[in-house]
Structures are given as structure tokens and as C-alpha cells.
């Protein structure tokens, strides 16, 4: 059946896997995991807000070429409530909260996105 080297190999693989788990769990602190809101206007990052520092109900203006887009903070989520753009697509986008989600207002050149280490939920898997 299995040779001696086979067994050593199997044990080595299990050890490496366990070491990998340990390494990963011990080296990923809370700060890295913390999601944050990144606000960009005219191509530049104007503000980064960690998720836990959001003040629900507070509104902040983001200045773009057309005027101020108004960002509203919620419980671990943000949205644009007003914008000087003609079509208001950014407002209709609604709340965003998960890493990878993004609100873009092209006319006013404003971009709000959620960044984080946490894996975004999968829409689907093909193989």
C-alpha cells in the first residue's frame, strides 16, 4: 500500500495546511478586516471613513464640477441623497454596504465605494 514516503508526504501536507490556517488567523488583525468608505471626487480620494466611524444620519457634501453631491451615512452603509447631476442615477443606486459595492456619479465625477479585505459575496460560480 502506501510507502513510507507517501505517509511522510501526507503528514507534511496536513501540517502545512494547519500551519497555513494558524498563520492566516494570527496575522489578520481587526484593522485589516475593517471595511471603509472611500470617497473620490474628480479622480482623487477626498476622504476615507472606516465603517465603524460612520455617524448615522449625518450628511456630508462632496464637491464636484457641478456642485455638491450629498452623502448620507447610515448604520454601516452610505448613500447619496442629493446630487446636482441631471439623471440622479447615483441617488437611485441606494445604500451600499458590502466590499466591492460602488456608487458612481459620472456627471459630477463623484465615486463612493466600500473597500475591505472581506471577500465580496459571490454572484455565482461557473466551472
Amino acid at each position: 500500500m502506501l510507502t513510507r514516503h507517501d505517509k511522510i508526504l501526507a503528514i507534511a501536507i496536513i501540517l502545512v495546511a494547519i500551519l497555513g490556517f494558524v498563520f492566516y488567523t494570527s496575522f489578520s488583525g481587526d484593522e485589516e478586516r475593517q471595511n471603509r468608505i472611500v470617497i473620490e471626487a474628480m479622480g482623487e480620494v477626498v476622504q476615507v471613513i472606516p465603517m465603524d466611524q460612520l455617524e448615522p444620519g449625518k450628511e456630508i457634501p462632496i464637491t464636484g464640477p457641478l456642485g455638491d453631491s450629498i452623502l448620507e451615512m447610515g448604520e454601516d452603509k452610505v448613500r447619496l441623497v442629493d446630487s446636482p447631476c441631471p439623471d440622479h442615477l447615483c441617488v437611485y443606486m441606494g445604500w451600499i454596504s458590502r466590499p466591492g459595492e460602488i456608487i458612481v456619479c459620472l456627471p459630477n465625477m463623484v465615486m463612493v465605494r466600500v473597500e475591505g479585505e472581506q471577500e465580496p459575496e459571490r454572484d455565482g460560480i461557473t466551472r
Binding site: M1, L2, T3, H5, D6, L9, A10, I13
Partner: peptide, 13 residues
């Protein structure tokens, strides 16, 4: 590997 690993070992690798 000169027979140190069986086919099973090679397969795992």
C-alpha cells in the same frame, strides 16, 4: 523518486 513514492503518493503530489 525511484519508487520512494507509490502511484498514490505521486497522485497526491
Amino acid at each position: 523518486s525511484r519508487g520512494r513514492f507509490s502511484l498514490v503518493g505521486i497522485s497526491i503530489c
